[in-house]
Structure formats: structure tokens, C-alpha cells
Design a protein around this nucleic acid. Structure first.
Length: 927
RNA sequence: GCCCCCGUGGCGGAACGGCAGACGCUACGGACUUAAAAUCCGUUGACUUAACGGUCGUGCGGGUUCGAUUCCCGCCGGGGGCACCA
């Protein structure tokens, strides 16, 4: 071992901690230093410890942060723990230890592992989402949500008190569906009428209606909805946590059941969450995932009156993105859960409808999707009137229509919708083509009806549609919607796939809601001064096996008397995402006991300039956090509409490449038993046996997990950091290969020998004050330029290659110019900080290099006195010439033409064209 | 099915439309060593040639260009996301 990395790394890690080397400078003291907020996605401190995937992102942001500090930037680079959550609770139940204890222990282990990597965090800013001093503010933000509503005119969150005032002043009116609207003056009340009645003023409502209206407008509200209930885990789960009808954790059965749960009104922000993506420097694919998740579609709601309704005219409202195909609607489908089903089903159809609904009821959404191969459904016996041609069409129910999207009812256009087509074929319903791919010529006969063929869902030109014949799809949509709107049977509208966020869990290990429930189950916020509402220390935190959360067993915590009334505390807890929705704000001011973040500090540091983390949070954490941030922004608590300006997803580090034979059953073989045979691999011993090479995700069950502790013990943190960064581009997924680590180990050993010496042979490197020789000087300036550019572009693999190259050039020199040695140590520092600090101190410096200025390069020095120019003939390389760096174009062309290797290819031919790309190449086109 | 990304040596990967394979690993040869490890030096895309050299080569087929790994069109293969969303 040429250098003792264990001792060196320990020494500098202690130095950095003791001297608080990486403390961010508070805004008041920062003067006019530029700032950078460089953030990692904080980990969930699991019992398994750090995975090699964690250090990849952490090292990347660390290199970037260390570089920026050397460029004179005030850097905020913090780390913390997302420590509430199911795994800690599961473990606690299994081992019968309190989750508080296991969490503390796991955090300790994670902190140790992260510190052993020499990451330059400001440890005075560490946050822990399970600390009451932290979750006090998570609860406070929840209260902001609870005490706010979404103002539909301003399109932003505002205090609920403001709504009350607007209502009291008659500025808003209330539609029958409970939505609020700008007062259109008394005559216009009909315009915002719904199916039952017209809009009303606040004072026309009774006290209970008033309370319901207010509670129904809050951004955090309670609602009775069908949820994924998992008896085995004793909690509801989000759709993402359920796979094939079973819980992702533990594989317990999950059932649908209606429960009253806390919801957050994220759907109000759907438009802004889409619009504001445009200004963010995020991967395009990730923006696309968020857009898909929100799923905005523009279309129209159209009312279909029921035939034979006779007395009360009742209508079925459908949502469609293709109102231009109304003439092709030959039947309708309601979701089996649609409230109208009971009322419209004829007596004759009641048994089959009831049977079908029973069959559907037990299935989760996911099961319904899984069974989607074959269309199912039953006829209700009812008919509706197509408003464009007054044709009666049959009304069916089918599970391919979901109650949760649109209006839970569709008009079926089998000619132009694949699902409707399949359904129509199965139940022999008519199919009518109403869109043609080609414009129709005036006077030409109309296209015949298609018998049983499906046309296309693609836009085209309307046919068989008197109101809009010949119009291209976009125009046809506009026209028909406008015409029907005049008759009051259609209106343009926008729908989203995004659902409101189910925000409560029946778990112990989460933030308690700062909410009291009265005898009627209505929610009342506790006062801010009572925060934090601490999680009670109970000994029995196991799930109850019923929807009763474990906290309901905390009897002396549960009941509260206020103003002569008794209340019960909300016993659900918040989901794991709550704490991670705002942690980046707490880092800015982690010890503030008066506010969640000081506004002056917030304005200085926000937004986050670089956020690095895994793509698995694309539509969960990153969407939730943006939502909370926008609410806080609307309420004036933060200064930016978006939290994370630039975001990068680090790629997955896969397990080592595995080879196995292509036969059944596959037999594992090692790399050296294999050789390439044409396009594929084969066994060396038996070339007829084909071999497949694959890499897999690291997993315990596959046994290919790499433990960072062992790598650091065997090779050192600097080598580990270099290795992970050298693996390939940050964003790419790439396989781990322990064999390759020695390359980085050799590099650092060579650096040590070159700049310090070889302790075993008592050779001391001679670092002398002397001019840098010309060739070396050019490489040095090149390296300074390239490494800086590469760090700024997060291309660490090529930056390291350039450092290796410079070190290779130094190898074998009898004496090393001091200027080069110092520059090298500074440039190496972001990547391999421990050895760099050690080199720096060997060069006679007594303090850390963490804030020494980054070396500057001289563009003039990038040029040596001569340069080599490749010469092509007809685009093929035929020779090279060496010319003076300042040679004129004519001289270069003359030299190129005279080069013997080139002459061979041009002699006897006419040079038709001569191209010279300055400093780059010469190309003669001959013919 | 729809959307996005990617195909370069034995491996990981480099290359503003301008010398394909930087840099690292592996393998091979050599030096040092009693020996091994470590270290150092050299070779390492394929075919061809005694050699100088030549030909081919960035998944496949075409196009644009003096010149294409890079830009365009069409396939094939791999990965990821969404998926009865009306």
C-alpha cells in the first residue's frame, strides 16, 4: 500500500467536522457572494444501511458543492432523514421495540456511513422528520392547508377567512353541487345552476349547510371514499402501494372499502402544476411523467336526456374529448357505481344489473384493469336521447367506465374508439362511422355506413354529421360544442386523471393530525400554540386489525375538553410523504422555533439550484412537494412558485454482469469461461452452448448487493467516490464491477507517488519552484478548463479521465513544478477530497483547501507552438502535417498538398475543392 | 397499444457534423523479484500484409453532406414510463 488512506481519511473527516469547514454562510454575513443550494433527496434510514446507489447521487452533489465553494460561491449543502414510515413500524412490531429506538439507531448508522464517504454536508443543519421540533412545522403546514381554500377566480390558495368574507358580502354564490362562483348578479344565477336548483347566496344557507360548504372548500378536507384497505397491515394504502390486489409490503390481501379519510385538494393545482413545468430545468421524460399523471384533457360535457322520463326530465351527463363524434354515439355506458343506475334500470333488467354490480364490487381498481382483456357489461333497459339527432340509444353499465374519471358515464362511439368497438362487437351494438380521414368533396355522395369495421380514432373530417359535415376534427369539436351550448345541453370543460391526495394512514409511526373531532365527526384545528402535537408514547402500537388506528388506544391522549365541550383527537396519522414535502425549507433555518423558516433566509436560498435523486419519486414526492410549495407560495410563506429549479435523476447502479447458458435450465458461468462468437457469447469449452449476459437490479434475494462499508474498508472512500463517478454518465444506469475499482486505486497511488513520494523505498517526490515545461503546461491548462466545464455540466467521468491523463504525463518526471502540484491537488479535491487535502498539506499549507480559489487557465497557454493537422483526401484520412500554431491558411494548405502520404492520393488527379477547418483539418476533394 | 430514452472493442465508456474507440478494466508480452503480490514499460477493433501499408468497421437499410457515431426517413433489438382516463 503506497498510502494509508484509512488514516488520512479519518484525519480529514475529523478536521472538517471540528472546523465546520462546510458550514453555509448565513445571508447576513454573505455579502455579495453568489449562492447555490445543492440538495440531495434525503434517505429513509432503513435497517439495511446505505446502498451503493445512495453514494452515487451524494458524491455527484458533493463534487459540485466543493467545486462551487472553490469558485467563491456560498453553498448550502445539507443532509437529513426521512424517518417516519411503514418499514420502521413493521420492524418494531416484529422485534417488539419502539420505532423511536430503531429509527435513532438506523439514523446513527446512516450518519456514520455518510460521514465515512467524506461528503461535505453542513451537519449543523441535519433534520429528522420524526423529531417533534421538525414535525411541529409539518403539522403547522397542514393547518395552513386546513385553513385555506382554492379561490377559483384568482386560481390560488387563500385563507378560509377570506372566503367567508366574500360569501358574506355576496361576492360569491354557491352552486347546487357546492362549488363557489363569482356572483353573476341575480339574473345570472340560472347560468351556474346544476341539475337540482339554482345557485344560492351564503345567507340563504342554513348553519349546517354553511359549515358543510366551508369544510368542503378546505384544501385539507375529510371525505368518504372507496379506498384500498389492507387488514394485514391495518392501514389504507395508496394505489401505488397495491400490486395485483395485494400489499407491496408483506403481500397481504387488499380490499376496497368506503372510509372517511383526509384528502388534500391537489386537483385544484392541476393546471399550475402542468404550466409551471415549462420553466424548470428537469429531464423532459420526467416532466412528461408528471403531465401524464395529471392527465389533463380538454373536451365537453354533454347532457343526454332519458327517454320516457316523462315527469321530471332527468339527464345523463357524459364527458368526451371528441364531441365531433356525437353522431356516431350509438349507445351509452355508465360506470356500475353510477348513482343513476338504480333509478333508470327497468324492472326486467334489475336482476342482471344487480348481479353484475355485485360481481364488480369486490374488485380493486387494479383487478378491474387486470381483468380488462374481455369486455363485460349489462343493459339497464333504459334509453337516452342523443341530443344531436334525437335518436334513442340504449344505456348499458360496464366496468370499463370508471366512476373516478370524468362524469362516470360515456357516450360510446364504436367506430372511433377501440374500447367501444370491442364492446359493440361483443354485444352486437350498431357502429356508425362519422369521421373520414379524407376531406369530402362538395356534392359527392356521403360515405356509406361502415358495417362492422372500425374506422380510426385519428382526427380527420366529419361525415354523416349534418351539423358539422366536412369540418376538420378540431373545428368540428368547437362548432358542435358551441351549438349545443346554446341549447344548454353541452359545455366545454377540462378533466384530469389526477385525484385528490389520500392523506391519512392507520399507522402509529407518522405525524399526528393537529385536529380535534366533535361529536358529529366534524374537524376543528387545534391552536398553533399547541404544536407540536406529540405522538403519544404508547407501548402497544400494533395495528388493531380494524380501521381503528393504533392511536385510538392512547386513551389518556385521546379525549380533550374545550369550552365545556368534549372532543376526540384525530387518530389517523400522515403518510410518509408529509415530512419530505418541505424538508428543503427547514434546512435553510433548521433551529428556528418561531417559524418553519425565516423569510429573509428563505428568500436568500430559494429556489434549490440543483436537486439530485432517483427517478422513483417522479410523480410522488416531486409532485406532492411542488403542490405544498405552491400552497405556501400562495399564502405568502415562501418566495418562489417552484421549489426545485434544476433536477437530475442519477441512474441506477445495477449488480455485476451475470453470465448464464441459454439452455433450460440456465446454468451460471463465469466471465472467463465465455468467449464472443459472432453476435453472441458461447462457452469456451463448448462453443455450441450459447451464453447470455445480463445485469439485474441489486437485491437481497439475488445476492448481488454491494456493501459500501466493505468497499470503503478495502479501497478507501476516495477510491470509492472516484469509481462510482467514473462508471459512466450520472444519469445512465450502469453495472457495478468490483474488478474495475483497482483502476482508481492505482490512479490515487500514482498521484501519491508523483506528488509525495514512495514511502517504502524512501523516495521523496521533488516538488520545485520552476516553470512548467511547454507540453505539460498546455495539458495543465487544458485540464483546468476541461475539469471545470465537466463539473459544471455534471460530467464527472470525463473530468476524472482528464485528471488521470495529467497525472500520467507527470509520471516519471524527475522534478514536479510546484504550480502544477498545487493546481493538481486543488482540481482533485472535489473528487477525492481526503488525499487532496493531504497533498495540500504536504505542499506546506496549514489550512484546508476547501475554499482556496479554483485554478485559472490561460487560453493562450492551451496552444503549443506547433500543431498537428490531419489531412483528408475525399473525406478519408491520408496524412498528418505539423505546422506552426500561427501558420497562415495558405501555408497550411501548401504543406498539406506537399505531404508525400497525401500526394500519393492526389497525384494525377484534379483537386476540385479544398476545405480547411481552422486548427482542425484539411480535406482535398479530387475527382 | 401509446409515449420517452438508448444500440460504439472482450467489459465500463470517450468523441462542438471534422483523426472513431479518450480514460479505466481485462488479456498478452517484457522489466524488477529467489518467488509471488505490488509497481513500471509496451501491445491490445476486425481482416490482410514479410514490412510500409491497405480494406472494412459505431444495430440494419436508405438519404442529406466534401465529410455522418453525430442530422433526416424507414426497419430491428434493448430499457423505462403510461395503459379501459372516454
Amino acid at each position: 500500500m503506497a498510502y494509508n488512506f484509512t488514516a488520512i481519511e479519518k484525519k480529514w473527516q475529523s478536521y472538517w467536522l471540528e472546523n465546520k469547514t462546510f458550514a453555509a454562510i448565513e445571508p447576513a454575513e454573505a455579502g455579495n457572494m453568489p449562492k447555490a443550494y445543492v440538495l440531495d433527496m434525503f434517505p429513509y434510514p432503513s435497517g439495511a444501511g446505505l446502498h451503493v446507489g445512495h453514494p452515487e447521487g451524494y458524491t455527484a452533489t458533493d463534487i459540485y458543492s466543493r467545486y462551487l465553494r472553490m469558485k467563491g460561491v456560498n453553498v448550502l449543502h445539507p443532509m437529513g432523514w426521512d424517518a417516519f414510515g411503514l418499514p420502521a413500524e413493521q420492524f418494531a412490531i416484529k422485534e417488539n421495540v419502539h420505532p423511536n429506538l430503531t429509527t435513532k439507531k438506523n439514523i446513527g448508522n446512516f450518519r456514520r456511513q455518510i460521514q465515512m464517504l467524506g461528503l461535505s454536508y453542513d451537519w449543523d443543519r441535519e433534520v429528522d422528520t420524526t423529531d417533534p421540533g421538525y414535525y411541529r412545522w409539518t403539522q403547522w403546514i397542514f393547518l395552513q392547508l386546513f385553513n385555506s381554500y382554492f379561490n377559483p377566480i384568482e386560481k390560488k390558495a387563500m385563507p378560509i377567512a377570506h372566503l367567508l368574507q366574500e360569501l358574506a358580502n355576496d361576492n360569491f354564490v354557491v352552486a347546487p353541487d357546492g362549488s363557489i362562483h363569482l356572483n353573476p348578479t341575480t339574473e345570472g344565477m340560472e347560468a351556474i345552476a346544476g341539475q337540482r336548483g339554482i345557485a344560492r347566496l351564503w345567507r340563504e344557507l342554513g348553519p349546517e349547510e354553511q359549515r358543510e360548504l366551508l369544510d368542503g372548500q378546505r384544501l385539507a378536507y375529510m371525505d368518504e371514499i372507496a379506498v384500498n384497505w389492507c387488514p394485514g397491515l391495518g392501514t389504507v394504502l395508496s394505489n401505488e402501494e397495491v400490486i395485483d390486489g395485494k400489499s407491496e409490503v408483506g403481500g397481504f390481501a387488499v380490499e376496497r372499502r368506503p372510509m372517511r379519510q383526509w384528502m388534500l385538494r391537489i386537483t385544484s393545482y392541476a393546471d399550475r402544476l402542468i404550466e409551471d413545468l415549462a420553466g424548470l430545468q428537469w429531464p423532459e421524460s420526467l416532466k412528461e411523467m408528471q403531465r401524464n399523471w395529471i392527465g389533463r384533457s380538454v373536451g365537453a360535457e354533454v347532457d343526454f336526456d332519458l327517454a320516457n322520463a316523462g315527469d321530471e326530465s332527468e339527464a345523463i351527463t357524459v364527458f368526451t374529448t371528441r364531441p365531433d363524434t356525437l353522431y356516431g354515439a350509438t349507445y351509452m355506458v355508465l360506470s356500475p357505481e353510477h348513482p343513476l343506475v338504480d333509478r333508470i334500470t327497468t324492472d326486467a333488467q334489475k336482476p342482471s344489473v344487480a348481479q353484475y354490480r355485485a360481481q364488480i364490487a369486490g374488485k380493486s381498481d387494479r383487478e378491474r384493469l387486470a381483468d380488462a382483456k374481455e369486455k363485460t357489461g349489462v343493459f339497464t333497459g333504459a334509453f337516452a336521447i342523443n341530443p344531436v339527432n334525437d335518436e334513442p340509444i340504449p344505456v348499458w353499465i360496464a366496468d370499463y367506465v370508471l366512476m373516478g374519471y370524468g362524469t362516470g358515464a360515456i357516450m360510446a362511439v364504436p367506430a372511433h374508439d377501440e374500447r367501444d368497438f370491442e364492446f359493440a362487437i361483443k354485444f352486437q351494438l350498431p357502429i356508425r362511422q362519422v369521421v373520414s380521414p379524407n376531406p369530402i368533396v362538395k356534392g359527392a355522395p356521403a360515405n356509406p355506413l361502415t358495417p362492422l369495421g372500425r374506422a380510426s380514432a385519428e382526427p380527420g373530417y366529419a361525415i354523416n354529421s349534418p351539423m358539422i359535415d366536412g369540418l376538420p376534427t378540431e373545428e368540428a369539436k368547437e362548432r358542435i360544442t358551441a351549438e349545443l351550448a346554446v341549447e344548454g345541453v353541452a359545455n366545454k370543460c377540462v378533466k384530469y386523471k389526477l385525484r385528490d391526495w389520500l392523506f391519512s394512514r392507520q399507522r402509529y409511526w407518522g405525524e399526528p393530525f393537529p385536529i380535534l373531532l366533535d361529536d358529529n365527526g366534524n374537524a376543528h384545528a387545534i391552536d398553533e400554540s399547541e404544536l407540536p402535537l406529540k405522538l403519544p408514547e404508547i407501548s402497544d402500537f400494533k395495528p388493531t386489525g380494524t380501521p381503528q388506528p393504533p392511536l385510538s388506544k392512547a386513551t389518556d391522549w385521546l379525549n380533550v375538553a374545550r369550552d365545556d365541550k368534549t372532543f376526540t383527537r384525530e387518530t389517523n396519522t400522515m403518510p410518509q410523504w408529509a415530512g419530505s414535502c418541505w424538508y428543503y425549507l427547514r434546512y435553510i433555518d433548521p433551529k428556528n422555533s418561531k417559524r418553519f423558516v425565516d423569510p429573509v433566509k428563505e428568500r436568500y436560498w430559494m429556489p434549490v439550484d440543483l436537486y439530485v435523486g432517483g427517478v422513483e419519486h417522479a410523480v410522488l414526492h416531486l409532485l406532492y412537494a411542488r403542490f405544498w410549495h405552491k400552497v405556501l407560495f400562495d399564502l405568502g410563506h415562501v418566495s418562489t412558485p417552484e421549489p426545485f429549479n434544476k433536477l437530475v435523476n442519477q441512474g441506477l447502479i445495477l449488480g455485476e454482469m451475470e453470465y448464464h447458458t441459454a439452455q433450460e435450465p440456465p446454468v451460471k458461468v463465469t466471465e472467463d469461461q465465455v468467449e464472443r462468437k459472432g453476435e453472441t457469447f458461447a462457452l469456451k469449452s463448448d462453443p455450441s452452448v450459447r451464453v447470455k449476459a445480463e445485469c439485474f437490479k441489486m437485491s437481497k434475494s439475488r445476492g448481488n448487493v454491494v456493501n459500501p462499508d466493505e468497499i470503503v474498508r478495502d479501497y478507501g472512500a476516495d477510491t470509492f467516490r472516484l469509481y462510482e463517478m467514473y462508471l459512466g454518465p450520472l444519469e445512465a444506469s450502469k453495472p457495478w464491477n468490483t474488478r474495475d475499482i483497482v483502476g482508481m486505486m492505482r490512479f490515487l497511488n500514482a498521484v501519491w507517488r508523483n506528488f509525495v513520494g514512495d514511502e517504502e523505498s524512501n523516495k521523496v517526490a521533488r516538488v520545485e519552484v520552476m516553470p512548467v515545461p511547454e507540453g505539460l503546461e498546455k495539458q495543465m491548462h487544458r485540464t483546468i478548463k476541461k475539469v471545470a466545464e465537466d463539473i459544471e455540466g455534471l460530467r464527472f467521468n470525463t473530468a476524472i479521465a482528464e485528471l488521470i491523463k495529467l497525472n500520467n504525463e507527470v509520471t516519471g518526471l524527475l522534478a514536479i513544478p510546484r504550480e502544477l502540484a498545487e493546481n493538481f491537488a486543488l482540481m482533485l479535491a472535489p473528487f477525492a477530497p481526503h488525499i487532496a487535502e493531504e497533498l495540500w498539506s504536504h505542499l506546506g499549507h496549514t489550512k484546508t483547501l476547501a475554499r482556496r480559489p479554483w485554478p485559472t487557465f490561460d487560453p493562450a497557454k492551451l496552444q503549443a507552438s506547433t500543431m498537428e493537422i490531419p489531412v483528408q483526401v475525399n473525406g478519408k484520412l491520408r496524412g498528418r502535417i505539423t505546422v506552426a500554431a500561427d501558420a497562415a491558411e495558405e501555408a497550411i494548405l501548401a504543406a498539406a498538398g506537399a505531404d508525400p502520404a497525401v500526394k500519393q492520393w492526389t497525384d494525377g488527379k484534379t483537386v476540385r475543392k479544398t476545405l480547411y477547418v481552422p486548427q482542425k483539418l484539411v480535406n482535398f476533394v479530387v475527382g
